[in-house]
């Protein structure tokens, strides 16, 4: 048979149409999100430092979905419908997570059937309350009160309280332009703490900064923070 152009065209079409099958795996489409909370108040942490683990039961293996909380305590995961267990690894976060009598970490059961918001209730060692941040006469001033939330035998002392200032909205010990510390032992009245630091100079002048205060707790790796505030001057 002589090969004509239409033979090739038909053959190509057939090949192309044979590949028109749908992928058999759907992408994850269900959003699970939420925020770290203590009695309805969000807890601020350092960006990308406090991890969480999400285990899906019923599958072979035991590998969790891991992620970290944002600096305002938010998390979100894009995944599939199913039954999950949510936990935070030991020693992470400026708060206590319930331990089981058997020795393991407690988990939160989450049954996903469509998008869902699950706030994570934890007990922080301390909370920063009534934070007032202001920019005035070349300084950033912070006034706040410290509330001790764990007072039993597992209570921990304050190592330092710090005011961090940065030019972008990421404000943390690792990412700041100005910082001032106050030693935990030097705090006279926890209900009335104030810190002040000069507004840092930036290469490109801007008339605003972002700031927040944090508490470093003795023997705990992660700091707890007040919400980030944008200050214009």
């Amino acid at each position: 048979m002589e090969i004509k152009f239409h033979h090739i065209a038909i053959f190509t079409l057939m090949l192309a149409s044979a590949s028109c099958k749908l992928d058999n795996v759907k992408p994850p489409s269900v959003t699970l999100k939420g925020q770290l909370m203590y009695k309805g108040t969000p807890i601020g942490v350092e960006y990308n430092q406090v991890p969480f683990q999400l285990y899906q039961t019923g599958y072979k293996g035991n590998t969790p979905i891991t992620g970290t909380f944002d600096q305002d305590g938010n998390y979100s995961v894009l995944t599939f419908n199913g039954t999950y267990k949510f936990t935070i690894p030991g020693g992470q976060g400026p708060f206590q997570w319930k331990e089981l009598p058997s020795g393991g970490r407690d988990t939160v059961n989450i049954t996903l059937n469509g998008d869902q918001t699950v706030n994570i209730e934890v007990t922080p060692y301390y909370m920063i309350r009534n934070t007032q941040l202001a920019a005035a006469s070349g300084n950033i001033t912070a006034k706040f009160s410290i509330e001790k939330d764990i007072t039993d035998a597992t209570a921990k002392n304050i190592q330092t309280v710090s005011l961090f200032v940065n030019k972008t909205q990421f404000v943390s010990p690792a990412d700041h332009a100005a910082q001032v510390d106050l030693d935990g032992a030097a705090i006279v009245d926890p209900a009335n703490v104030s810190l002040s630091v000069a507004i840092p100079k930036f290469t490109v002048t801007q008339n605003y900064v972002f700031a927040r205060v944090g508490i470093r707790i003795a023997g705990v790796e992660d700091m707890i923070f007040s919400p980030v505030v944008k200050l214009s001057y």
Binding site: K60, G61, N62, T63, P89, G90, G91, Q92, E221
Partner: peptide, 13 residues
């Protein structure tokens, strides 16, 4: 850890 559930995780991880 998946292959051997008797292995426990490191602290802080």
């Amino acid at each position: 850890i998946s292959a051997n559930p008797k292995i426990i995780r490191q602290p802080n991880q």
